[in-house]
């Protein structure tokens, strides 16, 4: 075999290995989606989104309470977490070498690697144990604690990608620093910050562990964040560990809804980023 042929074969072998690893990497996602669709899609109908759970043992019913609970809790977490995270991220990119920024960056990195159940325990200690009852608000606080470091880091990284020359251009036109920062730096990478925020929302929408200690879950429709409140991941947990076959079906369907929500947010995030490259 001459050299050129052998080289060609080496190339083919390496490319095949790479393709194989890509397939193995995406296989879990396909398996998860496939299983959820097979087991859960059958139970999804209009009632599933609009009705309350049926009494134990009875067929039918829906998870409207959990959808409302998740929306409320994740929404509140976003209202707390996004402004704080984005604000802190802007600070870290504006004063990158300050002590405060270095500390914040380090803490955020540690927090991003902290298991979410630990965050749940912390929220329990700080809020639930003091108020002596579980609440949706405690759940939101725990989710916000997960969001802040994520959003901080993505915001900072996105702003860092904006060329320094744009900052100079704005300053040279007489823009004060704060306006340069907001109307040039943040404005230019806004799609990236929005993407990061959506991904953070998608991530916390699926969190279960921190909610076990805080929002607790509920079988009733509740819109009061001062009370225990239902959530999609908690519903999956409750129904999946319950004794009835019908509950298991609901658990599969709820899991499917949850993953669809996460997928949709990721897709929107993708589209937002794509827009950016078309500009």
């Amino acid at each position: 075999m001459n050299r050129v042929v052998w080289r060609r074969w080496k190339s083919r072998i390496m490319v095949s290995l790479l393709i194989a690893s890509v397939l193995v990497a995406v296989a879990p996602l396909i398996l998860i989606l496939g299983t959820l669709i097979i087991r859960g899609a059958g139970s999804i109908n209009f009632d599933f989104f609009t009705r309350m759970p049926a009494p134990a043992g009875e067929a039918g019913g829906g998870v409207a309470h959990a959808i409302v609970g998740t929306l409320l809790m994740v929404g509140t977490a976003g209202l707390i977490g996004l402004p704080l995270g984005i604000g802190a991220g802007v600070f870290c990119s504006e004063f990158p070498r300050s002590k405060l920024a270095t500390t914040a960056r380090f803490v955020a990195d540690v927090m991003n690697g902290t298991p979410s159940i630990v965050i749940g325990v912390v929220a329990w200690t700080l809020i639930v144990a003091r108020q002596k009852h579980f609440s949706g608000f405690a759940g939101s606080a725990a989710l916000a604690m997960i969001m802040i470091p994520m959003v901080l880091r993505t915001t900072e990284e996105m702003i860092k990608l904006v060329p320094h020359s744009l900052r100079e251009a704005a300053l040279a036109l007489g823009y004060p620093r704060w306006r340069t920062s907001l109307s040039v730096m943040v404005r230019t990478c806004l799609p990236g910050i929005v993407t990061g925020s959506l991904l953070a929302i998608a991530r916390v929408a699926g969190e279960t562990a921190p909610l076990l200690f805080t929002a607790l879950g509920s079988q009733f429709m509740g819109t009061n964040l001062r009370q225990p409140i239902a959530a999609l991941p908690l519903t999956v947990f409750t129904y999946a560990t319950g004794p009835y076959d019908d509950w298991h079906r609901i658990a599969w369907a709820t899991a499917l809804v949850l993953i669809m929500v996460v997928l949709c947010l990721s897709l929107i995030a993708r589209l937002a980023t794509r827009q950016r490259f078309h500009d």
Partner: peptide, 15 residues
Amino acid sequence: RRRVGMVFQRPNPFP
């Protein structure tokens, strides 16, 4: 800076 305009080494238009 309003009275002193500046043009840089590389063109840096805003997006």
